[in-house]
């Protein structure tokens, strides 16, 4: 096994002190709170400044004893209350067998960040998906267009304030809310009896 995530955080802090935000107030509170509860479940990460994300990633990619050669995934989260869209890069090293997470906070009104395609070609589709579903503009991407939704789709579905369209080219769509969600009461009684009987027979947990 290679380095642990905390060791890598220390390395990044020592090498690129000006390019990372140690943590915003929210993150300090959040990380501290969760670390007290369970230090092992929250993976340590680095929050990069948006303008120097490329520099941080390049350093992580080419530093000989880190060598993050595999871009595993690009995730993104919408935080409307903080007015932030967070883009998360999950990195992996095949040579050293360690993983790391780099996050970047973008302005929700104008989420722009540099494309990572020159570093990892794998970023191509991930960034197109990020643009399609969350509306993040990855500047410098060679072919930034929608990948999963139709080309003429309006809006970015994974935003928390996304409103479903009533129809698409005459096809009705929108949130699927119907009366099917209501289980008839007699069915529920039957289900409970069945479950109790089943649990007694098997010796499993009773619900």
């Amino acid at each position: 096994m290679g380095l642990t995530a905390s060791e890598i955080v220390e390395r990044v802090r020592a090498a690129l002190p000006d390019d990372i935000i140690v943590a915003t107030e929210d993150d300090v509170a959040e990380a501290d709170e969760t670390k007290k509860k369970a230090p092992e479940t929250i993976d340590p990460f680095v929050l990069a400044k948006p303008e120097s994300l490329r520099k941080v990633c390049e350093w992580l990619c080419y530093e000989p004893d880190l060598r993050f050669d595999l871009l595993h995934c690009i995730s993104n989260i919408d935080y409307p209350d903080r007015n932030v869209i967070q883009v998360i890069y999950h990195l992996d090293s095949i040579r050293h067998k360690h993983t790391f997470t780099v996050k970047v906070d973008l302005d929700r009104a104008d989420p722009k960040v540099e494309s990572m395609v020159p570093l990892w070609p794998a970023a191509d589709w991930h960034e197109r998906e990020s643009f399609d579903l969350m509306g993040v503009i990855h500047t410098g991407h060679p072919n930034l267009k929608r990948i999963l939704c139709a080309d003429d789709w309006v809006g970015h579905p994974l935003r928390k304030d996304y409103e479903f369209p009533e129809e698409y080219h005459g096809i009705p769509c929108g949130p699927y809310v119907t009366e099917y969600a209501n289980i008839p009461p007699e069915h529920e009684v039957w289900l409970k009896e069945f479950e109790a009987e089943d649990a007694a027979k098997r010796g499993g947990p009773s619900s």
Binding site: T34, K37, A38, T41, I42
Partner: peptide
């Protein structure tokens, strides 16, 4: 699950 925890499990 408690608030704010993020897990990337592969």
């Amino acid at each position: 699950p408690p608030k704010g925890e993020a897990v990337y499990h592969t």
